[in-house]
Simulated scan of single mutants.
Amino acid sequence: MLESKRLYIRQMNHSDFKEISKMLQNSEVMYAWEHAFSDEEVTEWIDRNIQRYNNDGYGYFIVIDKYIDDVVGQIGLIKQDIGLGIGYIVKKEHWNKGYATEGATICIDYAIRNLKVDTLVADIRPENIASINVAKRLGMKKISEYDKIYRGQAMKHDVYQLKVTGLTTKIVEIVDYNPNWKYEFEKLKSTLEKTLGNSILKIEHVGSTSVEGLSAKPRLDVDIIIEDYSYLNDVVSRLKKLGYRHLGNLEVEGREAFSYETTNFMEHNLYVCPKDGKGYLEHIKFRDYLRLNPDKVKEYSDLKKKLAKLYRYDVNSYCDNKTDFIRGIID
């Protein structure tokens, strides 16, 4: 159903009884539950998750390492009273291999993109340090604690929350430079030029996808250049015919931002800028400097990859922590 470079994730069924038992009947794996499951409880576990698939479309999933062709754990999304939860159980022999973090990331990405959620939670026993460390690697923060009643017993749990931030980009993904980006820009540029005609001066490919060799989010940045703001209303009207909506300057001087519901082109950020506007001039300065300085391209790529790991679901913090590097080059 879902996959990453290393993992394949699918729904469980009763033929998985043996593999699921290796987890649920291992007292070390199940120490947070304070008991190993019986055969009957394992069967009930499978039935319960099949019911979740039917009712909610998700539950605990089977996680398989594609390279060793082995079930390594169960990871998934669970509807709880405290919110949509992320859960992970990994076989004892596969602890400390990054499976929980990688599998949970796949499921969280799915929840954000397909279920359109912006908040997920995990309830974890305070002594479960391994699970807490996974939650922290996922960007989750402790927000509360409560007593969870399980088998008639009150068990203290800490609640960790992941709140996705950012206006348009919900997941920060940085990939290696792709030569196709420049061709995707040219296709978009051609359509825009036909619609905008002599209302504009030119269209520029800016941002990280415009610099050869620079790692970037796979999303174009495009500046439409006008003589001055007297042309803006006409451009706004023409862009509206293509499905773009004017958002204003979003508190950035010298550029007007636009959004779209659907597009036939590669995902992109679109801006309209006066030729002497600060926004446009800084875009060009930054792009052209990087094009002439490959050492800075590598430095910026490394920085972005590092920040993307730290702030995968917090695009605002990701952008804020790039500011000093960008400002240094512009200055």
Rank of each mutant, 00 (worst) to 15 (best):
Y231D: 11
A154W: 09
L138W: 03
E186I: 07
A308F: 03
I226A: 05
G57H: 00
M1P: 15
N249T: 12
P274W: 06
I75G: 06
V90C: 06
E3S: 08
I329H: 04
D39T: 01
L120F: 01
L24S: 00
E93H: 12
Y280G: 10
K309E: 09
L303F: 04
T195R: 11
L24K: 08
M155K: 14
R327P: 09
F61W: 15
R287S: 11
G85C: 02
K156S: 15
K296C: 07
Q11I: 11
K18C: 13
I68E: 15
V90L: 05
I224N: 08
I129M: 12
V159K: 08
I284M: 13
T323N: 13
D221W: 05
M12C: 14
Y67C: 14
T119N: 06
Q161V: 06
R10P: 12
D70N: 13
W33H: 13
M140E: 02
Y271G: 09
L167T: 12
V235Y: 11
V315Y: 14
G103L: 00
Y99L: 05
L188N: 02
I330T: 06
L196I: 06
I329Q: 03
E145A: 07
L307G: 03
K18A: 11
W181Q: 05
H268R: 01
A122Q: 00
S190K: 14
L247M: 12
R125D: 12
N264T: 14
Q51P: 05
E127V: 12
S301L: 01
C273F: 08
N316D: 12
L250D: 04
R137S: 10
G59R: 00
K306I: 08
P294R: 01
H94V: 10
L220I: 04
I106F: 02
K240L: 10
Q25W: 00
Y311K: 03
H157P: 07
P179D: 10
M266N: 15
L188Y: 03
Y160P: 00
H14T: 01
G213C: 03
H94S: 15
F286V: 09
I20D: 00
K5Q: 10
M12S: 13
L310P: 03
G73I: 04
I86P: 04
E173R: 11
Y31Q: 10
E282A: 13
A308V: 05
N178D: 09
E40I: 07
L138Y: 04
E256A: 10
D81F: 06
T191A: 14
K304W: 02
I64K: 06
Y280S: 08
E267L: 11
D331H: 12
G243W: 01
W45K: 02
R6M: 06
Y146K: 15
Y313G: 06
G328I: 01
Y160N: 00
I112K: 04
I171L: 05
G139M: 02
G254K: 02
Y260D: 01
S131L: 03
A154E: 12
S199Q: 11
N96E: 15
A104H: 02
K305W: 05
V175L: 12
E127T: 14
S15D: 13
S131K: 02
